[in-house]
């Protein structure tokens, strides 16, 4: 668990993939804790990284920055960061900022799991 006043983060393991579940606002005050948490999860597993966005109220540019940093760190080893189930506001910010071209976003969890490379030791 890594918490800030604006964001609570937990993880679940499902069908061989690790899913990070942030709850709250992904913004200036919470972005660094979120980034550190994603990096920790990425280092502990070796498959793709899934992020359940369904309980993220909104994302600002600082939050986008942390997502981008982690996605870029995963990229050389052929790993992906996949987000799923964002609300309309989050989806709009992802679209406006061009992130839909960088990071895979699916509507449902099952689609994200289907698109993910599983952890080797699962």
């Amino acid at each position: 668990m890594a918490d800030s006043a604006q964001l609570t983060i937990s993880d679940v393991e499902e069908e061989g993939v690790t899913i990070v579940c942030p709850v709250g606002r992904l913004e200036t005050l919470s972005a660094k804790a979120f980034e550190d948490h994603l990096n920790g999860v990425a280092n502990a597993a070796d498959g793709d990284l899934l992020v359940d966005m369904s309980s993220v109220d909104y994302v600002t540019s600082f939050g986008l920055r942390s997502i981008l940093i982690v996605a870029k760190q995963l990229s050389p080893s052929g790993r992906k960061l996949i987000m799923f189930s964002p609300n309309d506001s989050v989806m709009e910010v992802l679209r406006i900022s061009g992130f839909l071209k960088i990071v895979e976003v699916t509507k449902t969890k099952s689609a994200a799991i289907g698109a993910a490379n599983k952890n080797q030791d699962a």
Partner: peptide, 23 residues
């Protein structure tokens, strides 16, 4: 135009105010 940038060229600086204008 952030939508027109490639992944490699992307810079996040300035994105915040770009979002403000778009929203």
């Amino acid at each position: 135009d952030f939508e027109g940038q490639s992944t490699e060229d992307r810079r996040v600086g300035g994105l915040g105010l770009f979002l403000v204008h778009q929203l």
